[in-house]
Design a protein around this nucleic acid. Structure first.
Length: 464
DNA sequence: AAACAGACCAACCGCAACTAT
DNA sequence: GATAGTTGCGGTTGGTCTGTT
């Protein structure tokens, strides 16, 4: 079902004859409109009567006038369009029309699976920052992405499915775990409150509970190690785990990571991150994700995701968002590409590292949640410090993405969260997604991210 | 064939940030 | 520094099309 707007028709005709006809018609209409506009402009100048601007759908002639104007004067100064061309549209409307429909190199048609996955990853990382997401999808507009996302989430929520694909959920869990250790808050309650105040909602796990996240991931590993389920589910609508072929321009893979890891290949923890050479990202040029915004070159500013899902989530989504293991369960057949043993080992180390000390020890200033859990009190510099060092090592093995930028903060355990909350610098969900995909690792769920092994794809129109 | 619901899309609105004066 | 104008962004709405009953 592809409907074309008048503007789209103007730019993309189906045959040369039609194109010629339309072009001629457009040209004719343009001249007529321009002449009329000039006359109207003169009259208006004389009368100085406020012009009643038109609303609603754009006509072909209006489009032609706008295109002509941009051709002559370039983009920008949209309020001058009405004055210069007589087009009875406000500047805002002109800009929107140009941006969303008339601008060259616009990609029309439905999103490709790669684009869909990229959108999910970007959304997990950025929240409802449509314009910034659009910057990563050439030819796509923010409005288009917004419409797609809203429709998709609505559909999925109605079907009781989590919004994010399993790999993105896993990335969220891992990145939040990483972020958690830098929190300078003294207790989980404070973290909860802060996260809530910062706009985190139930749809995205606030970066506060490492243990909960680990429990979820741990259960996922158990699932990975368990025998395959009896059912055979249809393929996920999300692209199977594989390197981004068509979106390669967004990611700069390290060559040696382009090959998939076979199930029999023991996976070194560093391989989880894939593509970071020695585990250190030296700079933006090594990032496989293009800078998310020009701001990424400037001072780092804490930017939290905007509100993503204020409405209550279905149990599956809530479980995933809150760290529930079920929604993290990927397709079993593709799990086999993930080395479960390695993951399990790493998780064991993580568990060891964050063993909760039930005694409510007071942290010695600047101590975060983990330090409190490690033992608190005077142990901060002995056992606690030791454990924190272990955590450093472990996290750095798991998410070396952060090594370079986070190095300073790692040594400063009272570092502010802002250094790691920025979406350009934090352990990027996108980074991790690509990592996992490049290995044929965590993959799309054949159960459509469902919890119970019951395929729910039949509920989803346009996806099956 | 008609009615209905859902999906899709274009466009509007309000707000905030930015820029020029 | 204050103000007005401009631009960009995100949320929302309303119209149209499609598929289902």
């Amino acid at each position: 079902m592809e409907r074309r707007s008048p503007g789209a028709a103007l730019l993309a005709s189906s045959s040369p004859e039609e194109e010629e006809e339309k072009s001629a018609a457009a040209e004719e209409g343009r001249h007529a409109a321009m002449a009329a506009a000039e006359q109207q402009q003169e009259e208006e100048d004389e009368a100085a009567v406020p012009v009643a601007l038109k609303k609603g759908p754009w006509t072909t002639s209006e489009d032609a006038m706008l295109v002509d104007h941009v051709r002559r004067h370039g983009e920008g100064n949209w309020n001058a369009v009405q004055r210069l061309t007589g087009l009875l549209r406000c500047g805002k409307s002109c800009r929107l029309r140009w941006t969303n429909h008339l601008r060259p190199n616009l990609k029309k048609g439905s999103f490709s699976p790669d684009e869909e996955l990229l959108i999910a990853q970007l959304h997990a990382q950025l929240g409802n920052k449509w314009a910034r997401m659009a910057a990563h999808l050439p030819g796509r507009t923010d409005n288009e992405i917004k419409n797609y996302w809203n429709t998709m989430t609505k559909r999925r929520q109605r079907a009781g499915l989590p919004v994010y694909p399993p790999e993105v959920q896993l990335q969220l869990a891992l990145s939040n775990s990483k972020r958690c250790r830098f929190d300078e808050f003294s207790n989980v309650q404070a973290l909860d409150a802060a996260a809530s105040a910062a706009g985190y909602t139930s749809s995205r796990p606030a970066p506060l509970d490492l243990a909960r996240q680990l429990a979820a991931t741990s259960q996922m590993v158990q699932f990975l190690s368990s025998p395959p389920p009896a059912f055979s589910a249809p393929a996920s609508p999300w692209p199977a785990a594989r390197p981004f072929a068509r979106n390669a321009q967004f990611f700069q893979f390290a060559a040696h990571h382009s090959s998939a890891v076979s199930p029999s290949t023991p996976m070194h923890p560093a391989d989880l991150s894939l593509g970071y050479g020695g585990g250190v990202r030296a700079g933006a040029e090594q990032s496989r994700l293009a800078p998310l915004s020009p701001a990424s070159h400037g001072p780092r500013v804490l930017e939290l995701p905007s509100n993503q899902f204020l409405q209550p989530m279905p149990p599956a989504s809530a479980a995933a968002a809150g760290g529930g293991a079920a929604a993290l369960l990927p397709d079993h057949h593709q799990h086999q590409n993930l080395n479960a043993e390695s993951l399990e080992k790493m998780l064991q180390e993580l568990h060891d590292a964050i063993k909760v000390d039930p005694s409510p020890a007071a942290s010695g200033g600047g101590g975060g949640v983990l330090e409190r859990r490690h033992g608190g009190g005077g142990e901060n510099k002995s056992g606690g410090q030791h454990r924190d060092d272990d955590m450093d090592t472990l996290f750095d093995m798991m998410i070396p993405t952060l090594n370079a930028p986070a190095a300073a903060a790692t040594t400063n355990h009272s570092g502010s969260t802002s250094q790691h909350s920025n979406d350009d610098q934090e352990p990027s969900a996108v980074d991790l997604a690509v990592d996992l995909q490049a290995t044929g690792g965590a993959s799309s769920s054949a159960q459509d991210w469902g919890l119970d092994g019951v395929c729910q794809w039949s509920n989803m129109s346009r996806i099956c």
